[in-house]
Design a protein around this nucleic acid. Sequence first.
DNA 1: TTGAAAGCGCTAACAT
DNA 2: ATGTTAGCGCTTTCAA
Lengths: 339, 339
Amino acid sequence: MGRVTLKEVAEHAGVHPATASRALNAATRGLVNPQTAERVDQAAQHLGYIPNSIARSLKTARSASIGLLLPDLTNPLFPPIVRGIEDVLRTVGYNAWIVNTDNEPEREADAIASFRGRNVEGFVAATARLRDPLLEELAESGTPLVLVNRRVDSPNVPSVTVDDKAGVMMAVRHLFELGHRELVHLAGPQDLSTGVARLQAFRQALEDLGLPAEPERIVEAASWSATGGADAMETVVESGPSYTAVVAGNDLIALGCYDILARHGLRCPDDVSVVGFNDMSFIDRVAPPLTSVRVPHYEIGTEAARLLLEALEHPDRHPRSLVLPPTLSVRRSTAPPPG
Amino acid sequence: MGRVTLKEVAEHAGVHPATASRALNAATRGLVNPQTAERVDQAAQHLGYIPNSIARSLKTARSASIGLLLPDLTNPLFPPIVRGIEDVLRTVGYNAWIVNTDNEPEREADAIASFRGRNVEGFVAATARLRDPLLEELAESGTPLVLVNRRVDSPNVPSVTVDDKAGVMMAVRHLFELGHRELVHLAGPQDLSTGVARLQAFRQALEDLGLPAEPERIVEAASWSATGGADAMETVVESGPSYTAVVAGNDLIALGCYDILARHGLRCPDDVSVVGFNDMSFIDRVAPPLTSVRVPHYEIGTEAARLLLEALEHPDRHPRSLVLPPTLSVRRSTAPPPG
DNA sequence: TTGAAAGCGCTAACAT
DNA sequence: ATGTTAGCGCTTTCAA
């Protein structure tokens, strides 16, 4: 594949390979006679030279690449994040390796080992559980690592996340202003920082607004999915407190909630209002269009990449975390309560 | 990062690096005394040895990696394909580099160069236009290349696609059996093989069934998007022939069609039936749930990866193309015509 | 400003 | 069955 070597370029330009190398590298180009440099350029162009990154990596112990750990790329949350990361990395000539772990620690461990073997310079991980020995270990080993979307419990791992608390507050306040007083939260699994943060924020919001806050108003879904949401909502409908609005842990849980409402002949928003979280693509196309807390996923990606590059440049500097503000996309799934 | 070297492992096991190398590689392990091999394993394990793939690549001129060219990962078509590819590659220790080209040839060229520099062994491309000099050149240069989803005009580039013709036939036959006789096609852009194949299949299907087939029954959308579909549908509504059903080039075009129908007070499916193509995720959640030709995207990915690996193993063998069968997901957007 | 020489970590002849 | 040697293509001291 990459047939032409630096040596050939050098020969063609009538210089030593070292000179050709210097001419072709921006950082060292100043060291070489402009005319010589020009001749090297010509030769490289003429021969269709493509530098062998592998050889360069071996020599420099750098790879211009990072590892990206995802639970599952087919979850619509992640593609915008990946694009954000990629768009920033590309500007500095970096590439990303992507791997899907399906939340299996073994797969994650394999991926990390594989990436280390490929000399990645750092990681972005969207797979963090609240307790995550693998990632904590990675961070402690001094490997640059930035978490996206989720955090780990220990404070020393930098992350880029949305302000979950503010998002839930927005959702609750929106419902409150529509006139709702009896709210319910279908919480996400509590092994993820997002699940915990949103649940705590919900409790806090009820308290702030002086709304009823019995424990039964919160049901934890078994998974961040429509079926998880459906099961949780079933519990609410069957045995929960009275309510006129639901704050779902994410959009998929909200969709499951829709299913159960429909099954019980309850209309959204006429009988029950529903708010989701993430504002994932096409959620404005479901019936009814879902009011949802918008998370700036693309920006999470770009900021994470920037943070990682910063960490690569200044390994000494203390890692920063970033919390981005959400917004609320109001749609037809929320309306004043009945009566 | 990958600190421990093979040399250290060898020293620790009291053998020569070459012996350690042989012991650690499945293919050559047979050449070494089982007890020695065991000792090497122990040493490697003990020291936390991770083989340096970069060094191996430089030596072997292989990289256990491929390049994956996508138009845009946030298009919900692609994540399942990517997963399919990744799931197969992982079983043989390969990884994929992903890049989004946004359909810009320059970005594609950059990516190809970058990947070649990283010694990728082959490419999977989802970016093929009907005429695509870059990819044709790549294929002619002998680089293993498999196209997914779309093909190029020249016949020598292997691809994995869905049977577009069969898919359109299914859609038309479904509508025909519901009683529809006046159909319209919102075609996708004709610079992509899928756009052309589906349009031709539509013509063919009308002819086969003896249905009216005036040229006005086909409108080409400017893009594979809701807005593209909306503009095309607007043309139909404003100045088209009489019709009771629409076959859209893909699901997004169908969504744009929904918008225009609604704007003109036409109900789907009561007044107009609509069929999409791709059966993308969550399309069963829109209102009304869209009847759509299901494309096995994940399988397209797995088969493409298999084809590519096959090409890597047998560079001489003639490359095969694969055409996978679609199915029809019938939902509430199609019903008997009014009256 | 350029050349010479060494070496990144590994594998694959070749030799023993 | 194992050791020796050379070299993949590049960058980077060091010397001139």
